[in-house]
Design a protein around this nucleic acid. Sequence first.
DNA 1: TTTATATATTGCAATATTACGATTAAGTAA
DNA 2: TTACTTAATCGTAATATTGCAATATATAAA
Lengths: 109, 109
Amino acid sequence: MGLIKTEKFTNQQNEIALIAKVIGHPARVAILQHLFKINACVCGDLVDEIGLAQSTISQHLKELKHMGLIKGSVEGTSVCYCIDTENWSKMKQIMTQFLDQDVSNNTCC
Amino acid sequence: MGLIKTEKFTNQQNEIALIAKVIGHPARVAILQHLFKINACVCGDLVDEIGLAQSTISQHLKELKHMGLIKGSVEGTSVCYCIDTENWSKMKQIMTQFLDQDVSNNTCC
DNA sequence: TTTATATATTGCAATATTACGATTAAGTAA
DNA sequence: TTACTTAATCGTAATATTGCAATATATAAA
């Protein structure tokens, strides 16, 4: 069906999955890495940097913004995007907690 | 097109995205959490636990196995699944390194 | 061998995602 | 005003994902 049955899972499980899903595309990984690297506002040079069509990059930016990982502010004709540090930290904590599950007692197979 | 242009990105970016993508479904998050919780082999009770069809769970297990996050061994008629601790640690390191990018110098917008 | 149980695979329908070109919107410069 | 620049949105095609029923496979028990 292509439709995820979110009602079968806990809020936490759905949230982890949503965060991971947004990161689960190399273009969005590249955008985030570039924003971290530049460490300041960036706009349409992401299109040159990444090499996908302008409309495609715009769509990925929209998804990242929708998840709250980045924020954008209009600067004249261009738009300045950057990491939303507060939300990034929150997201990082959620993911880290999931990833940090103790593996040492795992005594099977 | 629905087709990701992986050739536009670095191996690292593609790898991060692939890992995140596998985690990007609540059923797979639930499976992983259950395997951690039980801390031992588990088989078809994942179907009862999660409440999706057997074939659906089997497919998700296949994807997790394909990414190397879990491994399974046949035990009679059932199959014992568990976290692949070595690969989990590797994966965790890759993701943590990505998530840990320094946010403090971010002075924009 | 037959039957039962557990898991994997196949085939399919519904929906989602990715990507792009074309267009629109909104600001700037002339 | 018009022309230009930048980014968002729309429409669309191609592909991917999700989920299930049905079937296949493989082992165990009778």
